[in-house]
Design a protein around this nucleic acid. Structure first.
Length: 180
DNA sequence: TCAGTGATTAGG
DNA sequence: CTAATCACTGAG
């Protein structure tokens, strides 16, 4: 069994059900802080890391959200029900891990920016081995990746989202980044 | 500050 | 087909 950093709760919890993800991303994203991300590998080993940093991307209005350019083959999963993973490659090197939220035709997702002691969305997917093959994976039914609720709700801070200079002043400034 | 790196997208 | 873009990272 692989374990995380000393900051991890490292407490097994209960798999989070569908309803959790079907809410608005502005409710789900802060609720993700303190939840455990669990990965099970083919050799039987586990990762169980606490989510420490998350960003919300919300709807076609949000100029920072990939769905603002409409539904494409890449973003299609965001237009479905919550609980599935939206994965994409950025700068030719880094896979981004996003959790789709909301209900049908409400394109939303939460970007996972930090887990356990690992800070940075590109670094964590590299360490976890998350790639293209996780696109559309369902956190509610998957045998290799899911979220657990330990019942602990740590206090969190908020701030503007990172790396979205192209989105314009307003969308750049909304405090949709949540972190420990 | 800046290069690396390649999928995705819009446009011809 | 071409070219621009990019929810990042690590080196200097």
């Amino acid at each position: 069994m692989k374990t995380g950093s000393p900051t991890d709760l490292m407490v097994p919890g209960i798999r989070i059900p569908r309803d959790f993800y079907l809410r608005d991303v502005l409710d789900v994203a802060p609720d993700l802080i303190g939840k455990n991300l669990v990965l099970k590998y083919k050799d039987g080993s586990y990762f169980r890391y606490t989510l420490t940093e998350v960003e919300a991307y919300r709807g076609t209005e949000d100029k920072a959200c990939h769905a603002s350019k409409g539904k494409t083959s890449r973003t299609s999963v965001m237009f479905g029900n919550g609980g599935l993973l939206y994965i994409y490659l950025i700068y030719g090197m880094y896979w981004m891990l996003n959790i789709v939220t909301g209900t049908n035709e409400e394109p939303q997702a939460a970007l996972i920016r930090g887990i356990g002691g690992i800070s940075g969305p590109g670094k964590l997917t590299k360490i976890l081995g998350i790639d293209r093959s996780f696109y559309g994976e369902d956190l509610v039914t998957s045998e290799r990746i899911w979220l657990e609720d330990t019942g602990i709700k740590p206090p969190y801070k908020t701030g503007p989202r990172i790396g979205i200079d192209y989105a314009g002043e307003y969308w750049k400034s909304v405090p949709w980044r949540y972190f420990l």
